[in-house]
Design a binder for these strands. Sequence first.
DNA 1: ATGAAAGCGCTAACAC
DNA 2: GTGTTAGCGCTTTCAT
Lengths: 341, 341
Amino acid sequence: MGVTIREVAARAGVSVATVSRVLNDRPDVAAPIRRRVLDAAAELHYQPNRAARSLRTRATKVLGCMIADVTNPFFTAIARGVEDAAQQAGYSVLLANTDEELPKEQRYLEVAVAERLAGVVLSPASSTATDLSVLAGAGIPVVAVDRRLQGAAVDSVTVNNFRAASEATWHLIEQGCERVAFLGGPPSTTTGARRLAGYRAAIRQAGRPDAPELVVRGDFRVEGGRQAMTTLLETTDFDGVLVANGPMTLGAMEVLADRGRVVPDQVAVVSFDEDSWARAHRPTLSVVAQPTYEIGQRAAQLLLERIGDPGLEPRRLVLPATLHVRASSLRRVDLTTAHAS
Amino acid sequence: MGVTIREVAARAGVSVATVSRVLNDRPDVAAPIRRRVLDAAAELHYQPNRAARSLRTRATKVLGCMIADVTNPFFTAIARGVEDAAQQAGYSVLLANTDEELPKEQRYLEVAVAERLAGVVLSPASSTATDLSVLAGAGIPVVAVDRRLQGAAVDSVTVNNFRAASEATWHLIEQGCERVAFLGGPPSTTTGARRLAGYRAAIRQAGRPDAPELVVRGDFRVEGGRQAMTTLLETTDFDGVLVANGPMTLGAMEVLADRGRVVPDQVAVVSFDEDSWARAHRPTLSVVAQPTYEIGQRAAQLLLERIGDPGLEPRRLVLPATLHVRASSLRRVDLTTAHAS
DNA sequence: ATGAAAGCGCTAACAC
DNA sequence: GTGTTAGCGCTTTCAT
C-alpha cells in the first residue's frame, strides 16, 4: 500500500514536479515524457493520496449531501442524482441524515467544515432557523434542495409547490369534492408553507369557505400521516384530501383503510411524491410527481459551478412538478381508464 | 478560516506537541495545562484539519457504505444504522450505490482505497465475483451485509435466509396453497441462493413435486418483479407466491392487480422485507421482516472493532428474521383478525 | 520544458 | 510532563 509520486518519478526517470504536472494535466509537459509518466503510474497502480493533496491545495473533492430522511425515496432519489453528477466530476459524496432536526443538522454542518467539504447540498430543516454561518465562515458553498432558505442568498433547486398544490386541489374540486382537506407538513419548511398556500388559493378561487378544520399539519413522516388523518376523521367531514408528501400519504391511507373509508368514492386522494408503491396500490394513487433525480443532479451541477466560481449570482432553479391522475382521485370517470400514466 | 494547532499553542502558551496531546487525550498532560489548551481551542473555534491528521497518521475517520440500491428502503435502513453507529464513534460515512453492478462496485472499491477509508460496509453484488483484493492490498477491512462472500474470510451480518424462506413457504402451504411459486433474486447473491434453497427445502419436505416452472428469477428491482410475475402468470398455475425482496414485490403486486388476481383468495402472497407500504396496502402484506437498522448498526460495530484490532477472527453475525402474517397470505381465517401484525 | 525545494497542519519520536 | 523537530505525500513557486 502507498506507492507515492516519488516512486512514479523514479520509474519514469523524471522529477516529482513533472509527475505532478502530468497528473493534473498541465499543458506544459512534452508528449513523450507525459507518456512515460502515465505508463509508470499505471504500472505501479499509483493512486494519489488525497489527504496530501488536499492538505496542500486546501480543498477536497468531496461534496456533502444532507437530507432530512434517507428512508424517504423522494430524498434518496435526489441523493442519487447528486451522487451521479458528483461522480462524473470526480467528486465523492458524504451522505448525512438530519432527521428534520435543527441540532443534528447543525452538527453535520460542523462536520462539513471539519472535513473541509468542497460544498454541500442541503434540504434545510427550517427555512428560517437553519444557520449556515459555520459554512459561510469556512467559505463552503451550499445549494438548497426541495426547500428554500429565507433571506439567505444561496442557490436552490425546487419545484413550484404553490402551483402544484393548487392544481392538485383544483383537480379534486373538479372531481366533485365538496370538502377538500389538506394534510400538510411542518410550517417551518417552505414546502410545507407553499403547498398549504397553493391549496388555500385554489379553495378560495373556487369560492369555498376557508375551513380551518380541514387543514391538519404533520411532520412529513408515516406516523405524522397516521396522526393527521386520525385527527381529521375525528374532527370533520371531507370527501377529498391532498397529502403533502409520500410517507404521510402512507400513514393516511392506512388509517383510511382501517376505518373502512372507500377511496375514491368516499374520499378522493391526491398525494405529493411519486413513490414506487403509488402504482402498485389499489386504487392506484394520484400524485404530484417531482423530478427528484434531476433535482439532485442539477443541484450538484449548480454547486460544482459555484465551487469553480464563488462570485456567481445566486440562482434559483424551479423545475416542473406534474400531476399524475390515477384512480384514487377519479370519481366520475370509468375506473378502467384510470390506470393510465 | 483555518486556525491551526500553532495558534492554539501560542494562545495557551504551550508547544504544539502539548496541544496535540491534549486534543488526542493522551494521559500525560497536567490538568491545568490541559484546561488552558482546551479553553484556547474553544475560544479560537479550533477545528483540526483532518487532511493533515490523516496524512500523518495514514488513516481517516471515514467509513464507506456501499449498497446495491439507495432507492430500496431495506438498504437505506441499513445505511442509517451504519451512519448512526459511525457517528457515535466519531466517524463519517461515504455512501455509494453499486446498482448491483460488478464494475461499478469495483470502481467504488478503488475510490475507497484512494480515499484511504478506514473500512467498508458492503452488500456485495456477487458472492463469488466481487473482488476485494484492492481493499485487501490497502489493508482496508470489510464487513459484508445482507449477503455473504464465498471463500473470503470477512465479517458478515446477515439473517438466516434459508430458514426464513422455508418458514414463509411452510406458512403458505399451511394456508392451503397447492402450488407455491417463488420469485427469486439473482443466483449470484447468497440471499438469492439461500432463499431459493429454503423455499425448495420446504416444498420437498411437504412432499410436493419440485416444479421448476414455479421458480422465476428477477433482479431485485421493481421491474424485475413485474417481469417475473408476468412470466409466472403466462407459464403456469399457482395459488401462492413467496417474493424475494421488497421492490420485486411491488412490481409483482402491480401485475397481479392488473390481471385481476385476487389476493389472497386466488393467490396468497408473502414477501421479504418490511416496507412501510406493507401495512398501507390492501390487503395488508405478509412479510419476512429483517432487523435492517440493527444489521447496519452491528455491521458498523464489527467494522470499528476490526479497525481497532485487525487480528480478530472473522465473525458471522446472523440476526433473526421474523414472519409477520397479515392479510395477503391468510386464506382460512376471518379477515377481520388479519390486521394484527 | 523540467527540476529543486519549500511547506500545507498535524503527530510521534526523541530530547530534556 | 513538556518542547523540538522531522517528516507524511503532494503542489507550486522559483530557477534553470
